[in-house]
Amino acid sequence: MSIIPSNLLEGWDVIVIDDEPDSLEVARFILAFYGANVHTATNGKEGIGLVEQIKPRFIISDLSMPEMDGWEFVSTLKSAARSQSIPVIALTAHAMKGDRERAIEAGFHNYLTKPLTANTFMDELLTLLLDIPQLSEYLII
C-alpha cells in the first residue's frame, strides 16, 4: 500500500456508483487519497447522467442497485458509441463462481470484491488498471 504513490490517480476523473453510501464513501475516500476527482452516484441511472456530463477515465460500479443495476448500466453504457470505450470495473459483495466471466461478458472490464479496504483495494485496482492500455500510460508510477 505504501509503495503505491499517493498521486497515482492525480487529476483522473473517476465515477463510483454504489447504493450504499458508506461503501461509496470508503471508495471515494481512498480514490481521492490517490488524487482522483471522484464523482459518485447511487444507481445506474445517476451514473448514466454523470457519464453524460463528464468523461471519466474509468468507472467502478456496484452490481445490485435499485432503479438500474450494474448490469443494465454497463449494457446501456456500452451501447452508446460515446461511452462504450470507458472501462467499467464491477464491485461485488461476494463473488459468485463465474461472476467474473459473466461480468466480462456483460461488458465490465473486471471486478473487485468487497469489502474495500485501504490495504487491498488499491493493490487490486492497480493490477486491473495496468491491464488497460489506454489507462496504463497515464498511471504515475
Binding site: 500500500m1 505504501s2 450504499e20 458508506d22 461503501s23 470508503v26 471508495a27 475516500f29 481512498i30 487519497f33 459483495a93 468487497k114 469489502p115 474495500l116 479496504t117 485501504a118 490495504n119
Partner: peptide, 14 residues
C-alpha cells in the same frame, strides 16, 4: 464492510 473500510482507512496511513 463499511466498518472494515473505514477502519482500514484510519489505520492505513491515509
Amino acid at each position: 464492510n463499511a466498518i472494515e473500510g473505514f477502519t482500514s482507512i484510519m489505520l492505513g496511513g491515509m
